[in-house]
Amino acid sequence: MRAVSQVVASLSRVPGVVAAMVVGASDGLIIEASQIVGYAPGATDTRRPTAALAAYLYSKVNRASDAARLGTPAFMRLEAEKGHICVVGASDVVLVTIVAPDANLGRVRLDMMNAAKDNR
């Protein structure tokens, strides 16, 4: 398994990724996180609540997918007014990225799924 810090570092370098995190799947706690691109000192750090809630949402999506007999979700994306949250499961962690609205989502998806594959 690649070092968690390497995973975060490589995902955070993908154009359009504002922040990348590796988060405990069951507890929603951040294991490793990149800095937030464009973070202004004193601004609210959204990584912790994002990590907890994204992991939680992913767990629900996982159950929904299981209930529909569709297997494990491959990729989860939440699209909002000002950007996206992307989540990929990787064994007992989830990879979470906060992505700018104009990012190349295909590239983000691919890189996240490759990173997750390395970690399974």
Partner: peptide, 11 residues
């Protein structure tokens, strides 16, 4: 229980 998580509770 499984309906929540430590991270969510902390938040």
């Amino acid at each position: 229980d499984r309906e929540s998580s430590l991270g969510v509770v902390e938040i």
